[in-house]
Simulated assay, not measured.
Amino acid sequence: MDSKLKVSDYMVRDVVSIPPDFTILEAKNKIISTEFHGLPVSQDGKILGFVTAKELLREIDHPDKKVSEIIKDGTVTVSPDMDIDDASRVLFRYGLRNTPVVDESGMAVGMISNMDIIRSAIEKATPNKINMLKNFLSQQHDVKIEVRRRVIPIDQLRPTQKEVYADELRGRQYEIKRGLVEPLIVIRKDGYYVLVDGHHRVLAAKEMGVKQFQAFVLEPEHDIELGMEKSADEMGVKTIDDIRIIEGKNHPLVKVATRLLTNKDAGSE
């Protein structure tokens, strides 16, 4: 399944580009208004070149100079049907943060960034989690389990984790806004779903007003008793609202290094 993932599955389809007659000042302001570190230069939808923030910075003392005067002819591009792993090699090989996606006629149809590549890598890890859980439950309960991808209501989720970290919630909201919507992993029960993986995602989405979420649903052929659900009962966790949000601490996956200055230190700088 992983080998079939294409650039078209992850690229941003709204192509932001600038014309070659843009001035350095206009190009700088345009890049600042986007999430990109560089923009394609195009005319009538066809790519002429690419300009980076670093190239514009070199010309910052010449705000009226035209972009066409500083770009090289042509640029590195990828095609929408290219394997996502091959595209990652292109970006790595040329040290690119983002690059245009161009179809066979030379028209720009999207942009792919190293953030999109990272997103694809994160999402590709999900099937391994699902298969491990499916095999474990099948063997433990001697039951056949089907896996289906569905959109499920958040209010039908039964959590199995009692705490989440506030800093991780902010991070998950940023990911969701950027398009990293990694599906949840849940187990279907009678009238609800037991949430196995994705507690931070669910709370982040709920705070954003999202009412439903993509999920990989494990569906046993008959009801099974889950140890994780029993543990949740013992912790008093029955709904999403029962999860405690930990403020003031960082998620264990995040290590933040700081140097606290004393008054003496501050006065000497």
Rank of each mutant, 00 (worst) to 15 (best):
V186S: 03
M208T: 08
Q156C: 05
E168Y: 04
D142K: 13
I185A: 06
V194P: 02
A166W: 08
R172D: 04
N131H: 09
L180M: 09
P127R: 13
A205K: 01
P159V: 07
R170I: 06
I152D: 09
R158C: 07
I187F: 02
R188G: 05
A204E: 02
I152G: 01
L180D: 04
E163H: 11
A204Y: 01
V194W: 06
F213W: 10
Y165T: 10
V186M: 03
Q140P: 01
Q156H: 12
R172V: 00
K211C: 09
Q214L: 12
F136C: 06
Q156F: 11
K162Y: 13
V164L: 05
V196C: 08
Q214F: 06
Q161I: 12
Q156G: 01
E163G: 02
L157G: 05
H141P: 00
V151F: 11
F213A: 03
P127S: 12
I154E: 05
N128H: 13
Q139F: 05
Y165G: 00
K134W: 00
S138I: 00
A215F: 06
R149P: 02
I154L: 15
A205I: 06
R172I: 00
E182T: 13
L184Y: 08
F216S: 05
N135T: 14
R149M: 13
Y192M: 04
K144Y: 11
R178Y: 05
D167P: 03
V143G: 01
G209T: 09
N131P: 00
F136Y: 15
Q156N: 10
L203W: 07
Y193R: 03
M208E: 14
G191M: 03
R201T: 09
R201E: 02
V181N: 10
F136G: 01
Y193F: 10
V151K: 13
I176N: 03
I154R: 06
V151Y: 13
G179L: 06
Q139H: 15
V147G: 04
A204L: 04
V196N: 12
I152S: 07
Q214W: 13
K162P: 05
G191L: 07
Q139A: 11
V143A: 00
Q212E: 15
G179H: 10
K211N: 14
Q214K: 09
D155K: 12
R201M: 03
I185D: 02
D142E: 15
P127V: 09
A166Q: 15
G179F: 10
N131Y: 15
L195P: 03
V164N: 04
P183F: 08
Y193A: 04
V143L: 00
F136D: 13
E207A: 14
L195V: 08
N131I: 12
P127D: 09
M132T: 14
K162H: 14
E207M: 14
P153G: 03
I130L: 09
G198V: 15
Q212N: 11
K144V: 08
M208D: 10
Q212W: 09
R172G: 00
V217Q: 02
H200S: 05
Q139R: 15
A215Y: 08
A205M: 08
F136P: 06
N135K: 04
